[in-house]
Amino acid sequence: MIMNQFLILSAFLFCVGVYGVLARRNGVLVLMSVELMLNGVNLNLIAFSARLHAVSGQVFALFIITIAAAEVGVGLAIVLLIYRNLRSPDLDGVDQLKG
């Protein structure tokens, strides 16, 4: 099979995730978009693992899955905190850094 099938698919997933992170207002949806980006990266790693016959890519994909799970846990806790403080899960209200 052609390598680029997988690589471009993973790039597509990544960029859709980027769009979601940038354009979504709801914190939970932003986190979902982050998951899309992470999956794009993982697909990339597995494709190279198959191409190079090296198992390291799979191991790293496993690590990323684990870290993604942790990230979702912490991220959702933060969104909950925002919701509790601002009465809304929207990220627009978080603008204390305004210059």
């Binding site: 960029c15 980027v18 940038l22």
Partner: peptide, 21 residues
């Protein structure tokens, strides 16, 4: 559900996708 920077976000994402492809 979306904020007001939808259009620049789409441009940035498409641009990134183009460069990557």
């Amino acid at each position: 559900l979306d904020n007001d920077q939808r259009f620049p976000a789409a441009v940035a994402a498409l641009f990134l996708l183009g460069v990557l492809v």
